Computed example of a mutant assay.
Amino acid sequence: MNPPITLIPGWRLGRGPLAPLANALGAEWYDLPGYRETPFTADFADAVTRLIATVLPGTVLVGWSLGAMIALAAAARAPHHIGGVVVIGGTPSFVTRDGWSHGLTPEALAEFRAAIAEDEPAMLPRFVGGFNRGEPESKTLTAEILATADPAPSLEILLAGLDWLATVDLRAELPSITTPVLVIHGENDPLIPCAAGEAIAQNVPQGKWLPIPNAAHAPFLRHQATIVEAVSSLVS
């Protein structure tokens, strides 16, 4: 029997864009704190603790973007409880730091946070359109994501997620993740550089690297079959 799979969406967009992938994988959902039925917490460590307590032993966590960061943190803390991690468009550190150049500058993220606080609805199309740059069908993909995105949670919840992106640094925890980790990354991702995902695969003991050519930050939209095959190989 294959292990259970739980899919964790990324910041702001919720389940909608990932629904076809979840159906294809037969995955359950674990929403970010404050989204849908998941209780809100502004504390990242508390969010990780709650995730571990919720999923069954041996669960394979499939996380997209911010969801991937929570999945990795859970695997680092509870390697005997988490059966595997699939990272889609993920990074150990969203912003640049000393010794880490594969991210957004803290200043750029702070500017984005301020713009979200001022007018989130106006910023959403710019955000989605921006991370689809590099896709052959970028405008079509952007329209699809905007049409399927879940309603926005409260501004407090959105800003808490951006604060996590500004502060969380998982680089030191990667070697302690002993469960298998499959890292899937669009080669043309303009939001999280491909090198960030590759660094995850290189620094966990059981890492596998799967770059997706001609894909940006949401490779599951046009490369679902490739992703499902790779995930199935991991869990079988």
Rank of each mutant, 00 (worst) to 15 (best):
P219G: 07
V181T: 15
L182I: 03
G58E: 03
W100N: 04
K208S: 06
P125S: 07
E37H: 12
N2E: 00
A74F: 01
D189I: 08
G207H: 02
V87M: 01
S65I: 01
D31Y: 05
S138D: 02
D163W: 03
T148M: 06
A172T: 08
L182W: 08
A19K: 10
H81Q: 10
A147P: 13
I116A: 04
S138G: 06
P153C: 06
L159R: 02
R133H: 15
A166G: 08
L104R: 01
D150M: 14
A45G: 13
V235H: 01
V128S: 00
M69C: 02
T91A: 10
I8R: 11
H81A: 01
A45E: 14
L56W: 00
P106F: 11
C194M: 12
V181K: 10
M69N: 03
E198R: 12
L159W: 06
L18M: 13
L124G: 11
V55W: 01
L13Y: 09
N188E: 14
W100A: 02
L66Q: 09
L165Q: 08
H223V: 00
L234R: 15
A195N: 12
I52K: 09
T91H: 06
A117G: 11
A42Y: 00
A195Q: 15
A230I: 00
A68F: 04
W11I: 05
S233R: 14
A74H: 03
R12W: 12
L234P: 08
M69D: 02
I70K: 02
V62Y: 04
E173F: 12
D119G: 12
P125D: 05
H223E: 00
V128M: 07
P106N: 13
W100S: 05
W164L: 05
L7K: 02
S176I: 09
A78N: 07
L56F: 00
P219H: 04
L13Q: 10
V87R: 00
R113Q: 04
F220C: 11
A215W: 02
T41D: 00
P4E: 11
I52N: 10
E198C: 01
T105E: 13
H223K: 07
P121W: 04
F220V: 06
E135L: 14
A42S: 14
V55R: 04
